[in-house]
Amino acid sequence: MGLNDIPVFIARTPQEFHDLLLATRPDPATGRPDPARVGPFMSTHPEVAGAVALVSGRTITSGFADDTYLSLDTFRLLGMNGVSAPVRWAMVPVTPPRAAPSGTGPDYLFEDLIAALHQAPLQWRLVITTGEPSDPTSDPTRAWPASRRRIDAGTLTLDRAESEDNGPCTGITYDPTVLPAGITASDDPILPARSAAYMRSFTLRSGERKPASAITPAMVATGGPS
C-alpha cells in the first residue's frame, strides 16, 4: 500500500501533471519556479490551483508518527452482494497529532520516528471512506465531502523500523494496480500512470549502484544517531 500525507493529488491526468512539472520547473537563474510561468498556468488550470492550495494549507504535524496518510486515488471495493463501491482510504494516527515539527538536521524526521518506536509501538487506524454516486472517482484533485460514511477497517501497528540497507522494502516497487482479490482500480487516470511510471523508475534505479543509506542499521538498532 502506498500512501501520501497530502489531502489531494495536484493534477487530474498524467498530461496535466506533466504540464504542471514543466510550468513549475526551477528557473536556472534563481533556482526557483518562474512566477511568470507558474501564474498563467495556475489561472488556466483552476483545478490544479485549488489542489495546490489545499496541499499548501494542510496541517504539518510534528513528524511521521502523528501524520495521516491517504490513498489519494479512488479504488473499488467489491461487496458480498457482488456490487462494487468507490472507496478512498487513510491511515489515521491513534496518537493525536502534535503541532509543527521541532527537530533539526536533515534526518530528524527519521531519527524521531526511530526514537518513538524504541519507546512504544505506533498505531494507525485504517479508515475507509465510501463514495456516493455524486463523488468524483476519476479526479484525485477533488476531496470527497467530510460527511461520507467512514468504515474503521483495522489497526496498523508499527513496532520497529528498518534501515534501507538490507531492509525488506528495498528493491521492491509500489504499484497501485497490483491489488488483492476484491479490490480493483477505479477510472482514475492517475492509477495506470503511476503503475507505468513506477515500473520505469524501478528499472532505472535497480540498474544503478545504490549508495549506503543515511539511516544506518546501527542507528535503527540503537534508537538514534550514534
Binding site: T170, G171, M199, T203, L204, R205, G207
Partner: peptide, 12 residues
C-alpha cells in the same frame, strides 16, 4: 528469486 539488479537487466 527476487533481485532488483536482475530485474533492471532483464527489463532492458
Amino acid at each position: 528469486p527476487h533481485s532488483p539488479a536482475l530485474f533492471a537487466l532483464l527489463r532492458h
